[in-house]
Design a protein around this nucleic acid. Structure first.
Lengths: 283, 283
DNA sequence: GAATTGTTTTCCGCAATGCGGAAACGGGCT
DNA sequence: AGCCCGTTTCCGCATTGCGGAAAACAATTC
């Protein structure tokens, strides 16, 4: 339906667009799945057809396929489609594969409790990694309703505007840093850093003190402390953080929780192979 | 490759297998994804070709498609394929959609801590639902290494051999119960209930006391208490549980934690619309 | 360095498979 | 009933996926 230049039927030897590299029909499947993974999570064939700009008949076939594959199902009397548990199994394969996730799972919980013990009972603890030059949230502990904007497993945020992102970025190989720093930076909170120079300085500061601070840079009214998880080469493969409402997260508490977060991150780092003398971090 | 009866080419009017209903090429994609979601999590084209009994060339095209779709990627110098973060996002859509999950998230953590306070520091707390006549684990809190066999998010277990499963099954509509009870029951622990009659009795007991007990039925050396989460109709839509090594989980502790688990489950039930007078549960 | 083995990737003709307009079905409404 | 709106099935057309075979690439061995 899109105006494809010229699809090979031309007997005058027109340029064939280099198809034959991938199966386009399957791409539609994933577009549909991605739709179902976001609100309102349940859609009718027609909805899907509209969203993907497909003829209803085609959308219907796509959805039938997804049902046969066991990735989607039709719910009850309204014939709407939604994701199945099988999709959850496949998606969480990403987590099961991750050594960092398996290692940090318990430590993240302990970290959260130590923060509660400090009096930070609104705190939310996160484990995140870098994927596709973004922060990818892997796991969280705490009360998500306490923060105005909390992140779910699988969600993404920009690297430059979150504590987790800055902690990750500061300990990336230079090439990665340069690539990310070269991009446009969007504003998301009252104090988001948006210039390359300011961010470079911030990253250098983070490298020196070993952890990152987010003071309403990502979300209005939320402060956060984050520390990187390093591998044997000294590069960050993930990060841990604690966020809380700015009102209940004063400088003294930030200071105190930074110790907790750094200690937790270091513990994970060591367990995945990091040896302390390789790097700048000293707890 | 599979011996397909007869694929329509026969000019003598052979029976066409009713294709045209779904897109078979996409099914291969999901088979491949499912492979990548289980150990060893990283596979070469040839591995995938072997596992799916496909020609290498075809397997290669399937994987290229998955890469284009953003669901898989090739890792480093070894050209092996693995899942991407986008897959995690799609899969966790199942969780974000779930009201029970969102509601129980915090309560599950509180429940776990109350159990720790009892002295059960090896305890693992679970939230699970029923999907495809199986227990589907949604979330867990605690130290997974403490139990000999712990369940990850997205994992499945039979209904009849787990505390969670029995709690779910006991509060299903009769038709569902009958359907499940009619099936063969596998043994997985030293005391698994495997006869229909025994299970019926057990379920009736569970309905009366309002929660389920698993005494090494699922895993040798593990005991567990589970309570159902009920909706407005009084049917179970999910369940909460606490498991711990049998040695540290005596009858007195089981008794005490049953109160905690039931209270937590009731709290979730009420929040999702359950009204206490509709059912048999009394905390 | 050249030869060898084990991969992954590209090529390309064949026909199976997906496409989508249009028509049939279904089931909630006045 | 009769209408309306969304879902599902039909079916000829040509696009798209198929897979054997050969070419690129990579990692060892002689």
């Amino acid at each position: 339906m899109l105006v494809v230049p010229n699809t090979g039927t031309g007997r005058d030897g027109g340029v064939r667009p280099d198809r034959r590299t991938s199966m386009s029909s399957s791409l539609k499947c994933f577009q549909a799945l991605e739709l179902l993974a976001s609100p309102p999570y349940e859609l009718s064939v027609t909805d899907i057809a509209v969203e993907l700009s497909l003829p209803v008949a085609s959308a219907h076939r796509v959805m039938t396929t997804l049902c046969v594959a066991g990735a989607a199902e039709q719910h009850g009397k309204t014939k709407w489609y939604r994701l199945t548990g099988r999709t959850l199994w496949i998606g969480t394969g990403y987590l099961r594969r991750s050594v960092v996730y398996r290692t940090a799972f318990v430590i993240l919980q302990e970290m959260a409790h130590k923060c509660y013990a400090l009096g930070l009972n609104q705190a939310l603890a996160y484990l995140a990694t870098m994927d596709n030059d973004q922060v990818l949230y892997l796991h969280s502990v705490g009360n998500p309703t306490a923060l105005s904007l909390s992140a779910n497993t699988g969600e993404r945020r920009p690297l430059h505007s979150t504590g987790l992102g800055k902690a990750l970025l500061a300990f990336q190989p230079r090439e990665v840093r340069d690539r990310v720093l070269a991009r446009k930076m969007t504003t998301s909170g009252p104090r988001t850093i948006t210039t390359e120079m300011a961010l470079r300085e911030e990253l250098s500061l983070i490298r020196h003190r070993g952890y990152a601070i987010d003071d309403e840079e990502n979300v209005q009214g939320t402060r956060c402390v984050a520390a990187p998880i390093l591998d044997q080469t000294g590069d960050a493969v993930a990060a841990l953080s604690v966020s809380a409402p700015a009102g209940s997260f004063g400088d003294a508490l930030m200071e105190a929780s930074s110790l907790i977060v750094r200690e937790a991150a270091l513990r994970v780092s060591v367990q995945i192979g990091y040896r302390s003398q390789t790097s700048h971090i000293h707890v």
